[in-house]
């Protein structure tokens, strides 16, 4: 029981740290790049002005990749700590 308890604490600490890392990356693509959209528009990517590209497509791709990565990482934490569902 005590080991189960401490495993649960390890699990939660790892889960929190993953959450924070995920939200930092999220913050960069949700807010930071768009704050500087005007300056970014000075550069070009695939023929698009960079600031426009990030809002129209770049951030979206980043979110999709981030969320699939997050799901994998969280599953790994659950399994490692013996906290995943039995099935």
């Amino acid at each position: 029981m005590t080991t189960d308890r401490s495993m649960q604490e390890v699990h939660w600490a790892k889960t929190k740290s993953l959450m924070i890392r995920t939200l930092i990356i999220w913050f960069v693509f949700a807010f930071l790049v768009h704050w500087f959209a005007d300056s970014l528009n000075g550069s070009e990517i695939f023929g698009f002005p960079l600031g426009f590209y990030m809002a129209a497509q770049g951030s979206l791709i980043a979110f999709v990749v981030l969320i699939f990565w997050f799901v994998r990482a969280q599953n790994k934490i659950d399994v490692e700590c013996g906290m995943s569902e039995e099935d």
């Binding site: 939200l23 949700a30 951030s59 979110f63 969320i67 997050f70």
Partner: peptide, 10 residues
Amino acid sequence: TGGYVLVAAL
């Protein structure tokens, strides 16, 4: 779109 990161993580 980015709101789903919050949905998944939180």
